[in-house]
């Protein structure tokens, strides 16, 4: 109890910061990856190479990724920007891959008829492809969100704040309570995001005919 009186408001602030980092990264990643995924379905030849690059980004250890980004001049000393950029890089792949796979996975006869009946490219995308791929795209967003919330704990290493702050401090001072005070809210955030997006995903799933 004593512990909570001491750290309660800090945990709340850091949780909000954590959400802000992960949330901002998700907004950027979605804005990049969904259109890019759609573009790849129009140019399937590029899909292999582009997804490979996104894959490689994904394999960079997160601590190293934050380190790589530190010296970039245009990021200045704004630690939050670095963190958001790094998180965006991790979030892009699952969204991109699922957008691409979701649209490519639509029953070809449905796409065929949409074209043959004279839907324009834009109508086909808005009326047929996006709704039918929606549950797939949401599954990608879900994976990306959970990943982001997890990796955002590393952001504290470059001074960007978030719940990692408590974890790093706890590790440094060998105080398990501090480690848990960071780790438990981060885990709960991830679980909550997973559950909410999972519900949305099920909501959007189209029954197979």
């Amino acid at each position: 109890m004593e512990f909570f009186r001491q750290y309660g408001s800090e945990i709340a602030t850091l949780t909000l910061e954590h959400l802000w980092l992960a949330g901002a990264a998700m907004v950027f990643a979605t804005a990049v990856a969904v259109p890019a995924g759609i573009l790849l379905t129009r140019r399937p030849r590029w899909a292999g190479p582009v997804i490979a690059v996104a894959n490689i980004l994904q394999t960079i250890p997160s601590l190293a990724m934050f380190g790589f980004l530190l010296p970039l001049p245009w990021l200045g000393d704004r630690a939050a920007r670095i963190a958001i950029l790094a998180l965006t890089a991790y979030a892009v792949l699952p969204i991109l891959r699922n957008t691409y796979a979701g649209i490519r996975g639509i029953d070809p006869s449905v796409i065929e008829v949409a074209r043959a009946l004279g839907l324009t490219d834009r109508q086909r995308l808005a009326m047929v492809e996006l709704p039918l791929a929606a549950s797939f795209i949401l599954a990608g967003l879900r994976t990306a969100t959970v990943t982001c919330i997890g990796i955002a704990t590393i952001a504290a290493a470059v001074g960007a704040g978030g719940l990692g702050e408590l974890i790093f401090r706890g590790v440094a001072s060998v105080d398990n309570r501090l480690v848990l005070a960071g780790a438990i809210p981060a885990a709960l955030l991830a679980l909550a995001a997973d559950a909410v997006l999972g519900l949305l995903e099920r909501w959007w799933r189209v029954p197979a005919s």
Binding site: D107, V110, V113, A116, L117, P131, L132, V206
Partner: peptide, 21 residues
């Protein structure tokens, strides 16, 4: 015009291609 042409031609295939949603 491609779109006008297609609007003026009905198209039926074995798999139906109905929009499931």
């Amino acid at each position: 015009d491609l779109i006008a042409l297609r609007h003026s031609i009905g198209y039926v295939i074995q798999e139906t291609g109905l929009f499931p949603h």
